[in-house]
Computed example of a mutant assay.
Amino acid sequence: MPVEHAGSRSELALPATGYRMLLPDQWAQVPLRHGTDEAVDSILEDAYTRIPKDAPPDKVGPYKRELARRFRKAVTQAQETNALDLYLPVKPVADGSFNLGASILVSETLLPDRGRAATDPTELAVQLLSRDGVEQADLSSGEIDGALAVRREHVAASGPGVELASRRVEYIMAVPGDPDRWFVAAFSTVGAGDPRDDLSEALVEWFDAVMTTFRWRRG
């Protein structure tokens, strides 16, 4: 997993008040607690401007409605998790289509009561990750911008309400200055229809690279 050390010792001692990470401009951020509707409307309007001007009118309307439906559904599902931010690829790919088959969900979680007696921060992070019942996963640990980070990778099977299996990578990080809070950045992709295909592999590597750019905003 990425291991990063950034900032002076005095900077690292300051409490975290936010975060930033570098993403390509094909990806858009949707805040999930405040300003969600405004962000969604703005992103969709921007996407509509990329529809070719010579596109048949009878195709444009259905295309817009389907794009809006899929996009709003993804946002609504993310809001139901009480997350902080959702990142989606919203600009067209080479063939002009939009690919919503990947996402990054940012959230935070609190230390479970049963973990307070533990002294190993890595053990606490694993406890937090294990609350969702995932049993077969690859785990590794390190530091990102001066904070402990545990990385988990696994394949989530399809099921009720979930059409396709997905490849998932989560980073859970201790929030500097607040030992009870943990930050989670969760990436999910269906690849080209198989969570173990070459596209999924490439996207997982891409997300790991994104996490090397992660930095805390400190007060």
Rank of each mutant, 00 (worst) to 15 (best):
E4F: 05
D113G: 04
P92E: 13
N99Q: 09
Y87G: 10
G146A: 11
T212M: 13
P57I: 11
S188G: 06
K91F: 07
E45A: 12
D41Y: 00
R114G: 05
A74P: 04
V150D: 09
A74L: 14
F214D: 05
A47N: 01
R218G: 13
E201F: 10
T213H: 11
E205I: 15
S42C: 02
S188Q: 10
K91R: 15
V150K: 12
L164D: 09
V169M: 12
T109R: 07
S107F: 00
T122H: 03
Q79P: 04
R116V: 09
P89L: 13
S10L: 14
E153Y: 09
G115D: 10
G133S: 03
Q29W: 00
L105Y: 02
H34F: 01
V93Q: 15
D58T: 15
P62V: 08
G115S: 14
L128N: 10
T36Y: 00
Q127A: 12
R72L: 06
A202F: 13
D37V: 05
Y63E: 14
A6M: 10
D85L: 10
P160I: 02
S188E: 10
H34Q: 07
G7C: 05
G159Y: 02
A137P: 01
S200L: 12
V3A: 08
I51N: 08
D41P: 00
N99W: 11
V3G: 08
W182P: 02
R181S: 11
S10H: 11
P15K: 11
D41K: 04
E11K: 11
A74G: 06
A13E: 14
D178I: 09
E170Y: 03
D145W: 10
L203A: 15
A174D: 08
E108L: 05
P89Q: 15
E205L: 15
F183I: 06
V90E: 03
D54A: 12
R69H: 13
R168K: 09
K59L: 14
V126D: 01
S107M: 00
G101Y: 04
S188T: 13
L100V: 06
W27L: 01
R116W: 02
T119Y: 00
A68S: 12
S141M: 06
Q79F: 05
P31V: 01
E163Y: 05
S103T: 03
G133P: 01
A6V: 13
A55L: 08
G18Q: 04
D180Y: 07
D197Y: 08
P160R: 04
R151I: 06
A28I: 00
H5P: 00
A137D: 02
E123Y: 04
V60A: 13
R9V: 14
G193T: 08
R131V: 12
A83E: 08
T81E: 09
S10G: 05
P57L: 13
T36M: 00
A137N: 02
V134P: 02
M21K: 00
A174C: 07
Y171V: 09
V106S: 03
K53W: 04
M1D: 10
M1T: 13
A137W: 02
P89W: 13
A83G: 13
A192I: 08
D46T: 05
V3S: 11
D132Q: 09
D95A: 06
E80R: 10
D138Q: 14
E80C: 02
D85I: 10
L22H: 02
R72F: 05
D113C: 01
P56H: 14
D178Q: 14
L32Y: 01
L199N: 15
L124F: 01
T213R: 12
A192G: 14
A102M: 08
E143Q: 13
D37W: 01
V75N: 07
S10P: 02
A16D: 04
